[in-house]
Design a protein around this nucleic acid. Structure first.
Length: 873
RNA sequence: GCCCCGAUGGCGGAAUUGGUAGACGCACUGGACUCAAAAUCCAGCGCCGCAAGGCGUGCCAGUUCGACCCUGGCUCGGGGCACCA
């Protein structure tokens, strides 16, 4: 055995061995329990960043642990290859998106291999390959025929200078990121998927996902946002509107209906358009509402503005004329694009009414009497449930009774009924971009929208295109869009929009089971690997809502398309581990034209105050100052990703893996710092040295019984306690930093065992073997090597996880904490078998208790078995 | 603005079910080895105090024999908000 730990050489040799034996290759095996361990696949941005290292190490640790426990483990990897950065690279450097993407995949795959993950690379694919997306197109046509996919208008960000649709990320302070021009909202036809038809199931099934973090389930529940209330119809005031009709709104507070003093509609609402026809000021206001992007955060934080239309509706219960306002806070996409406003009992309506001098009418009193009278000027709106006042026949009714009574009266007039409402909206999947899956639809003047028939699939995305950043390249390629109608054969136009990349990431995990199937989307192998759900999914918490919700939805769509046969998979992910983000500081400079340039932390020199807080920063290259931004998730757009390659080059993959796992528990966000890498490396060197010293003497079999000194007995207690703790950390808690710490403690204790004779060496053999096996999932290269040295005969055998020897855990005496009045005052050694009375007696006799009791009996005596005794004087 | 999460020494973090706050590691300090340095090993290391002891888990209140942990109210930081992935 080499005396010195040389990670580069160890890792090269071990990886070559794994490669040779196909150690990570896996096939279906009915004789073994399966464990499908999935990590979220990366976008091929070019280089791995620390978030990837963390994510894939967590996955690999679990995969290897379950493998050691005898499971048939599948750990696949692929590439979420479509998306905007490839187009941006094309615009900047003129490289075709496909070429750029495949080059990035090669680079990142090499990095993943260097890290030694037990990935079955035979199953790898990229979502930009026609063999993959053809099945997505195929299912799309089925869903289109069933009406799950439909077309309607949707609102997008429009850059009037670049004449192009912008992603929310490309809108900065209301302006296009390249042109700097103010962005406008524009309505265009788009394809939607009816996720709202599955809203109830998506909500109900959350209850079954007990392997998911509560936090994620809660976020999804709130996102789906099922609320109960009432639909209310406000008949048009025919004299002002000039037409018959009913304005529909939804409210969760029908009990406040008698306090409604106006209604508000979105700028795009037909009533707003009608009123603006002969009102230039209103037209101008509606134009103003169209300025700015569509992102909800921007809309919700914008100043609330409105304008009266001069039109009226009639209150459905008392016939009173209520003005119709256009308001920028009402969104056409939600519900009916109109709301009823009750300023006295809704904070937003209150602020709006105060600003524009609209009547505020109190109709709810606090049940405790705190808000009883309609007295102006009002304090902030009383938005709690209460009792109806100033509401005629409804006076005195509580929330539930008022809702029932008002809903019944509305129903009697045909102007409303109780119903549920979802916040969830249908999923718009059309993108006016090049680098995505072509939407398989042909537009024919005679036949309308015709899905591409199976025999013409896939609709292949042409790869050699010119990307300019203005408009969609496909829309400039007649050779792509000119086609014959599949139905009537006449000249027709192929759809040039592509699909949202979330579609590809909604089912890739199923395709890993059967990537080579060229006659079906999925097959029986999915049943083997996905029965009961994918056993473990690991990925960033930033995907808690969209990606995970879309994947759940898409799985249900595939189920309902009959693709899973009798197996009928409904929920794809049984266990979910949401990794906390690796965050890093951001640095930028703003150019005069408003463009922002972001600088990588590695190119920055920081100046800190006495307490170590950064106060100023400058770019090393030009020594000029840069602005310090927030500490954000590592991303390409903020250029704050830290490249792990330098770490791997200097210390090796095992140190990188150990350090990242030791730094914090997986679900916690981690501010990147490489302080402490040395410590991880030092630990591996120490482990190597301890094994080297041990094996340089003749081999002894691991301890298997016989008399022990008290010291060795105590050490074996620690050893087996540690094995149990570490196994629990891997399997249940998924907290690897404490598993590592426990093994460190064990080895610290191991180093302190007196050299002793044969027995001590046997115990040390047992401990070192166990420690190396416990660490194997985290640092597999060094452990593979050390295990071969420790058990020369078993070198070829796949390593197993050590078992707990329960005999070693038996104790004669235990130590209890002695508290007086809840404060630590000493310890108590008692026989392990001592009962409550014996413990109480020992506690009262203790020096500490005597000192504080002054001979008086205690007021209380609390014994927590196995832990402590508290004497309350 | 709305939804979710977090805050513990100089730093990363531990305390698993309300029961010893600070495990493990980093940094630092002292010592050993060395011509010297590196590496390694040993010891110390929350704050105040000579000590006894007191204080201490973002802030303010509360529940409890006992609170980092539970409840209410804040502050700050992070994530998501439907076209970043």
């Amino acid at each position: 055995m080499q005396e010195k730990y040389d990670p580069q050489e160890v890792e090269r040799a071990v990886q070559a061995q794994w490669e040779k034996t196909g150690a990570s290759r896996v096939v279906e095996d009915a004789g073994k329990p399966k464990y499908y361990c999935l990590s979220m696949f990366p976008y091929p941005s070019g280089k791995l960043h620390m978030g990837h290292v963390r994510n894939y190490t967590i996955g690999d640790v679990l995969a290897r642990f379950y493998s050691m426990r005898g499971f048939n483990v599948l750990q696949p990897m692929g590439w979420d290859a479509f998306g905007m950065p490839a187009e941006n690279a094309a615009i900047q450097n003129g490289v075709p998106p496909a070429k750029w993407t495949y080059a990035n995949i090669d680079a990142m795959k090499a990095q993943l291999k260097r890290l030694g993950f037990a990935i079955d690379w035979e199953r790898e694919f990229a979502t930009c390959e026609p063999d993959y997306y053809r099945w997505e197109q195929w299912l799309f046509t089925r869903l289109f025929e069933r009406g799950i996919v439909y077309k309607r208008l949707g609102t997008v960000n429009w850059d009037p200078v670049d004449q192009t649709v912008l992603a929310n990320e490309q809108v900065i302070d209301g302006c296009g990121w390249r042109s700097g021009a103010p962005v406008e909202k524009r309505e265009i036809p788009m394809y939607y998927m009816k996720i709202t038809a599955y809203a109830d199931e998506l909500l109900d099934d959350l209850k079954k996902l007990d392997g998911w973090p509560e936090q994620v389930r809660l976020m999804q529940k709130n996102w789906i946002g099922k609320s109960f209330g009432c639909e209310v119809g406000f008949p048009y005031d025919a004299a002002s509107v000039g037409a018959e009709g009913v304005l529909k709104v939804f409210t969760t507070r029908p009990d406040t209906l008698m306090g409604a003093t106006y209604v508000a509609v979105a700028a795009e609402h037909p009533l707003a358009t009608a009123a603006a026809a002969d009102d230039s000021a209103l037209r101008e206001f509606i134009e103003e509402c169209k300025r700015g992007g569509v992102a909800e955060a921007d809309v919700a934080t914008a100043e609330k503005k409105g304008m009266p239309t001069g039109l009226y509706v009639l209150h459905p219960l008392n016939g009173e004329k209520l003005p119709i306002w256009v308001a920028n806070y009402v969104l056409m996409a939600y519900g009916e694009g109109a709301v009823m406003a009750v300023p006295a009992h809704d904070e937003r309506d209150f602020a709006f009414a105060e600003k524009y001098g609209i009547e505020i009418r109190t109709v709810i009193a606090s049940p405790t009497g705190a808000y009883t009278e309609a007295t102006a000027p009002w304090a902030p709106a009383y938005a709690e449930h209460g009792v109806c006042v100033n509401s005629g026949k409804y006076d005195g009714l509580c929330f539930d009774d008022a809702c029932d009574a008002i809903a019944a009266d509305l129903a009697a007039r045909g102007l409303g009924a109780k119903r549920a409402q979802f916040r969830l909206r249908d999923w718009g999947i059309s993108r006016q971009r090049y680098w995505g899956t072509p939407i398989p639809i042909v537009h024919c003047d005679a036949c309308g929208d015709v899905p591409v028939p199976d025999e013409q699939l896939p609709v292949v995305l042409p790869e050699n295109v010119e990307v300019t950043g203005s408009g969609s390249p496909l829309a400039r390629m007649p050779e792509f869009y000119e086609c014959a109608c599949p139905q009537c054969g006449r000249p027709a136009r192929r759809e040039t929009d592509t699909m949202d990349t979330f579609v590809e990431s909604s089912w890739y995990f199923l395709r890993y089971c059967c990537p080579d199937n060229d006659t079906a989307m999925v097959d029986d192998r999915v049943t083997y690997w996905c029965k009961g759900g994918i056993d473990q999914y690991v990925g960033g918490i930033e995907h808690a809502i969209l990606h995970l919700l879309y994947s759940r939805f898409w799985t249900k769509l595939m189920r309902d398309a009959g693709l899973f046969g009798d197996f009928r998979l409904s929920e794809p992910f049984a266990q979910l581990l949401t990794q906390g983000m690796v965050v890093a500081p951001t640095f930028y400079r703003k150019a005069p034209e408003g463009k922002t340039e972001w600088f990588n932390p590695s190119d920055i020199e920081l100046e800190c105050d006495a307490r170590g807080r950064p106060v100023a920063a400058k770019l090393v290259a030009d020594a000029q100052p840069v602005q310090i931004g927030g500490i954000e998730k590592m991303s390409k757009s903020r250029n704050n990703g830290v490249d792990p390659q330098a770490l791997i080059d200097e210390y090796g993959a095992d140190t990188a893996r150990l350090f990242v796992m030791f730094a914090s528990p997986p679900d916690q966000s981690l501010e990147w710092s490489d302080a402490g890498v040395e410590g991880a490396y030092r630990f591996l060197k120490r482990l190597w040295r301890m094994v080297h010293e041990h094996v340089s003497e003749p081999h002894v079999p691991a301890y298997s019984g016989g008399a022990l000194t008290p010291e060795l007995k105590e050490f074996r207690y620690l050893l087996h306690q540690t094995i149990g703790k570490v196994a629990d950390d891997y399997a249940r808690r998924k907290q690897f930093n404490t598993a590592i710490a426990a093994v460190m403690e064990l080895l610290n204790a191991c180093a302190k065992i007196g050299d002793g004779g044969e027995t001590a060496r046997a115990v040390r053999q047992e401990a070192l073997e166990a420690a190396v096996r416990m660490l194997y999932p985290i640092v597999p290269h060094i452990c593979e090597t050390l295990l071969a040295e420790l058990c020369p005969k078993g070198a070829a055998v796949r390593p197993s996880f050590p078992d707990v020897d329960t005999d070693a855990l038996a104790r004669d005496e235990i130590e209890l904490v002695l508290q007086v009045d809840g404060k630590l005052r000493g310890h108590l050694r008692v026989p392990a078998s001592a009962d409550k009375a014996a413990i109480e007696e020992a506690a009262l006799l203790s020096e500490a208790a005597q000192r504080y009791l002054n001979g008086k009996p205690p007021r209380k005596l609390i014994v927590v078995p196995g832990r402590l005794v508290n004497v309350v004087p």
